[in-house]
Measured scan of single mutants.
Amino acid sequence: MDVFMKGLSKAKEGVVAAAEKTKQGVAEAAGKTKEGVLYVGSKTKEGVVHGVATVAEKTKEQVTNVGGAVVTGVTAVAQKTVEGAGSIAAATGFVKKDQLGKNEEGAPQEGILEDMPVDPDNEAYEMPSEEGYQDYEPEA
């Protein structure tokens, strides 16, 4: 019985440690998101679009440190934060509304985080759909 109880105690310690790591990862992701939003706020009209992409990228980098179902929630929060940063930029006159959601080359930025393969159960990952990809044929 002692062996059984000791095993359960060790398992509990492992769960607590994993929860603490997840909590730490979420806190880091939130900190990076805040950094990115402050970065966007300090940019001029020309830099705002690039700044919004930076927020998304920093958040995406930190999301990889967070495991399990938390990833889905962090990704949703990050996307809403990026959308909010863009709205703030438009409201303050840093950028025109028609410039939001495009990178410096004018290509749409939507789907940055949505296409990231995420499995809350950590069982399997699927690649994003290939609808947006084109076949590449090298020139002879």
Score class of each variant (00 low, 15 high):
M1D: 00
M1Q: 00
D2Y: 14
V3S: 07
V3K: 02
V3H: 06
V3R: 14
V3Y: 03
V3I: 04
V3T: 00
F4W: 04
K6E: 01
K6C: 02
K6M: 04
G7N: 14
G7L: 11
G7M: 10
G7V: 11
S9M: 15
S9V: 12
K10L: 09
K10T: 04
K10Y: 09
A11W: 15
A11I: 15
A11L: 14
A11R: 00
A11H: 01
K12I: 02
K12L: 08
K12S: 09
K12G: 03
E13C: 03
G14L: 06
G14N: 08
G14Q: 14
G14S: 12
G14R: 12
G14V: 10
G14D: 02
V15W: 05
V15E: 00
V16K: 09
V16M: 15
V16H: 06
A17I: 03
A17H: 12
A19K: 03
A19L: 15
A19V: 12
A19H: 11
E20Y: 10
E20G: 02
E20F: 15
E20W: 10
K21I: 08
K21G: 00
K21M: 05
T22G: 05
T22S: 14
T22C: 15
T22Q: 00
T22R: 01
K23G: 02
K23P: 00
Q24P: 00
Q24A: 15
Q24H: 11
G25K: 13
V26A: 03
V26W: 14
V26R: 00
A27K: 14
A27C: 13
A27H: 11
E28D: 05
E28I: 06
E28K: 12
E28T: 14
A29L: 09
A30C: 07
A30T: 07
G31M: 14
G31A: 09
G31Y: 14
K32H: 15
T33H: 01
T33W: 12
T33Y: 10
K34G: 03
K34N: 01
K34Y: 10
K34T: 05
K34R: 07
E35Y: 13
G36V: 08
G36W: 08
L38G: 02
L38M: 14
V40T: 02
V40C: 05
V40Y: 04
V40K: 01
G41W: 09
G41R: 05
G41I: 09
S42F: 11
S42Q: 08
S42H: 10
S42A: 12
K43H: 08
K43S: 03
K43A: 13
T44S: 08
T44I: 11
K45F: 04
E46L: 05
E46T: 15
E46M: 09
E46I: 06
G47R: 15
G47W: 09
V48I: 08
V48A: 05
V48Y: 11
V49Y: 14
V49W: 08
V49I: 13
H50K: 12
H50E: 04
H50L: 15
G51V: 07
G51L: 13
V52F: 09
V52I: 05
A53D: 12
A53T: 04
A53Q: 14
A53V: 08
T54L: 13
T54E: 02
T54K: 06
T54G: 06
V55D: 00
V55T: 02
V55F: 13
V55C: 08
A56I: 12
E57I: 12
E57V: 04
K58W: 07
K58A: 10
K58C: 14
T59G: 14
T59R: 02
T59H: 02
T59V: 13
T59M: 02
T59F: 10
K60F: 06
K60R: 12
E61F: 05
E61P: 04
E61G: 10
Q62P: 03
Q62T: 08
Q62D: 01
V63M: 12
V63I: 15
V63R: 03
T64M: 03
N65Q: 07
N65W: 14
N65P: 02
V66R: 04
V66Q: 01
V66I: 14
G67D: 01
G68N: 15
G68Y: 02
G68F: 10
G68W: 11
A69R: 14
A69C: 13
A69G: 07
A69T: 11
V70R: 02
V70F: 02
V71I: 08
V71K: 09
T72D: 09
T72R: 11
T72M: 14
T72N: 11
T72S: 07
G73H: 06
G73D: 01
V74K: 01
T75V: 15
T75C: 06
T75D: 03
A76Q: 12
A76M: 09
A76F: 10
A76D: 03
A76P: 02
V77K: 02
V77H: 01
V77R: 02
V77N: 01
A78P: 02
A78M: 12
A78Q: 05
A78E: 01
Q79A: 05
Q79Y: 05
Q79N: 09
Q79V: 08
K80Q: 04
K80A: 10
K80Y: 15
T81R: 02
T81K: 02
T81I: 08
T81M: 14
E83F: 07
E83I: 15
G84I: 15
A85H: 03
A85M: 09
G86Y: 14
G86V: 12
G86R: 08
G86I: 14
S87Y: 04
S87F: 14
S87L: 10
S87I: 14
S87A: 13
I88M: 08
A89I: 13
A89C: 10
A90E: 01
A91K: 03
A91P: 04
T92I: 03
T92H: 03
T92F: 02
G93I: 06
G93F: 12
G93H: 07
F94H: 09
F94I: 12
F94N: 03
F94M: 03
V95C: 13
K96E: 09
K96S: 11
K96D: 04
K97I: 10
K97D: 04
Q99W: 12
Q99R: 05
Q99H: 11
L100N: 08
L100T: 06
G101F: 12
G101W: 08
K102V: 03
K102Q: 01
K102Y: 01
N103Y: 14
E104L: 14
E104V: 12
E105F: 05
E105W: 01
E105K: 01
E105T: 11
G106P: 07
G106M: 05
G106Q: 05
A107M: 14
A107T: 15
A107V: 10
A107R: 06
P108K: 06
Q109I: 05
Q109V: 07
Q109F: 04
Q109E: 11
E110H: 02
E110R: 11
E110W: 04
G111K: 10
G111V: 15
G111Q: 13
I112W: 06
I112C: 05
I112K: 04
L113E: 14
L113C: 02
E114Q: 05
E114I: 06
E114W: 12
D115G: 09
D115S: 07
D115K: 11
D115N: 10
M116H: 14
M116D: 15
P117S: 05
P117V: 13
P117R: 05
P117I: 07
V118I: 07
V118F: 13
V118C: 09
D119M: 09
D119S: 04
D119F: 03
P120N: 08
P120W: 03
P120H: 05
P120D: 06
D121F: 03
N122M: 13
E123C: 14
E123V: 08
E123P: 10
A124V: 14
A124F: 13
A124H: 06
Y125D: 09
Y125N: 12
Y125I: 13
Y125V: 08
E126I: 11
E126C: 07
E126V: 12
M127E: 14
M127P: 04
P128V: 03
P128T: 06
S129I: 06
E130S: 03
E131L: 06
G132T: 14
G132D: 12
G132A: 15
G132Y: 09
Y133Q: 15
Y133V: 05
Y133P: 10
Q134N: 15
Q134A: 09
Q134C: 04
D135F: 05
D135M: 03
Y136K: 07
Y136L: 06
Y136F: 06
E137Y: 09
E137F: 05
P138V: 09
P138K: 07
P138I: 09
P138W: 07
P138M: 04
E139D: 08
E139W: 05
E139K: 08
